[in-house]
Simulated assay, not measured.
Amino acid sequence: MSNPTNLSPSDRKLAARRALDDLGHDRDDHALVRVRCGRSHHVATVFDTAAGAVYESLIGPHAHGRRDYIDEAHRTDRHRIHYVDLLDGDRNTDDTLPAHCECGGYELSRIQLRHAIDTHQRTIQLD
């Protein structure tokens, strides 16, 4: 794979999605950092992949866990977006990454996520 700093944003996201797909069903074993809100909802995860650290978050309404239901009426016009990107980028790459849980939307910092990985922090708890 090319150096992530030489990829366009769309190529970087495509490489990240392919790298996550390559992890298969056991990808939870490759989690480097998990991000949770103050109410312990899942916000985002960074995975260790062959392409490097990959950030993933579901943007929009979603359930708290595997057996929970979305806290919204049926046939809503809002849909979740599966946001995936390589954590590392070049100096022109925006530092903020979108994230979401049932409490609302967040913006996470690539630099802070990278620092958490470097210091072996497994979970980031948001306020």
Rank of each mutant, 00 (worst) to 15 (best):
M1S: 13
M1C: 04
N3V: 05
N3M: 01
N3A: 10
P4K: 01
T5A: 15
N6R: 08
S8I: 11
S10R: 15
D11F: 02
D11S: 14
K13A: 06
K13N: 10
L14S: 13
L14H: 14
A15R: 12
R17N: 02
R17Y: 06
R18D: 05
R18W: 03
R18E: 02
A19T: 03
L20Y: 09
L20S: 07
D21V: 00
D21K: 14
D21Y: 02
D21S: 04
D22S: 08
D22C: 07
D22L: 09
L23Q: 08
L23Y: 00
H25E: 09
R27P: 00
D28F: 06
D28R: 11
R34Y: 07
R34D: 03
R36L: 06
C37P: 13
C37S: 15
G38E: 13
G38M: 01
G38I: 13
R39S: 11
S40T: 04
S40N: 14
H41Q: 03
H42M: 03
A44Y: 08
V46E: 12
D48W: 00
D48I: 04
A50V: 08
G52V: 09
A53H: 03
A53C: 12
Y55W: 14
Y55Q: 06
S57T: 05
L58T: 12
L58W: 14
L58N: 08
I59E: 05
G60D: 11
G60C: 08
G60L: 10
H62S: 01
H62G: 08
A63L: 03
H64F: 05
G65S: 05
R66A: 08
R66V: 12
R67E: 08
R67L: 04
D68H: 10
Y69E: 10
Y69K: 11
I70C: 06
D71H: 09
E72S: 08
E72R: 15
A73I: 00
A73Q: 05
R75M: 14
R75T: 04
R75K: 15
R75N: 15
D77G: 12
D77I: 11
D77Q: 12
H79D: 01
H79F: 12
H79W: 09
H79Q: 11
R80N: 07
R80S: 15
H82S: 06
H82F: 07
Y83I: 02
V84G: 00
D85M: 09
D85R: 07
D85I: 07
L86K: 08
L86Q: 07
L87Y: 11
D88M: 04
D88E: 15
D88P: 00
G89C: 11
G89I: 09
R91W: 03
R91V: 07
N92E: 14
T93D: 13
T93Y: 01
T93E: 12
D95R: 06
D95L: 08
L97H: 10
L97D: 06
H100T: 01
C101F: 02
E102H: 05
C103H: 02
G104N: 09
G104T: 08
E107K: 02
L108H: 04
L108M: 05
S109Y: 09
R110A: 03
I111F: 12
I111W: 00
Q112W: 00
Q112A: 15
Q112H: 11
L113C: 11
L113Y: 00
R114C: 09
H115Q: 12
A116M: 04
T119Q: 15
T119Y: 03
H120L: 13
H120A: 15
R122I: 03
T123G: 02
I124C: 10
Q125E: 02
D127Y: 01
